[in-house]
């Protein structure tokens, strides 16, 4: 399996990662090598095997519909790069 420049750019876009143009050949080489490693999976026929998502296949627990968390907006927003009046600020989205 080999990923070319275009593949790497597409994946980086899907992952919302800015990568340097100069690093693309290295990414394409390394990601291709990892996919070659991963391709060893194809050696085994798994058509009748049930996928295992999780070590303990319990169903998701439900909790009571009750408020358990206190409002800690200020404490939580203390970590934000930019806030104003309790709102997170980002560059303008709607023209």
């Amino acid at each position: 399996m080999s990923l070319d420049k275009e593949d790497v750019e597409k994946i980086a876009h899907l992952a919302r990662l800015a990568i340097n143009e100069d690093d693309i050949p290295e990414y394409s080489r390394e990601l291709s090598k990892i996919l070659d490693l991963v391709a060893q999976m194809n050696a085994v026929d798994t058509s009748n095997i049930e996928p295992m998502a999780h070590p303990q296949e319990n169903s998701q627990r439900l909790r009571e519909d009750k408020i358990t968390e206190l409002n800690q907006r200020d404490a939580i927003q203390a970590n934000a790069p930019q806030v104003e009046r309790g709102l997170y600020l980002v560059p303008k989205v709607i023209e």
């Binding site: 593949d7 994946i11 992952a15 919302r16 990662l17 800015a18 990568i19 990414y27």
Partner: peptide
Amino acid sequence: LYKRSRGEGFGQEVKRRIMIGTY
């Protein structure tokens, strides 16, 4: 903002694994 914050904030190995997983 998303792309550069993530591109600059994550190191090489983390970006590699995010990309493999995304693919």
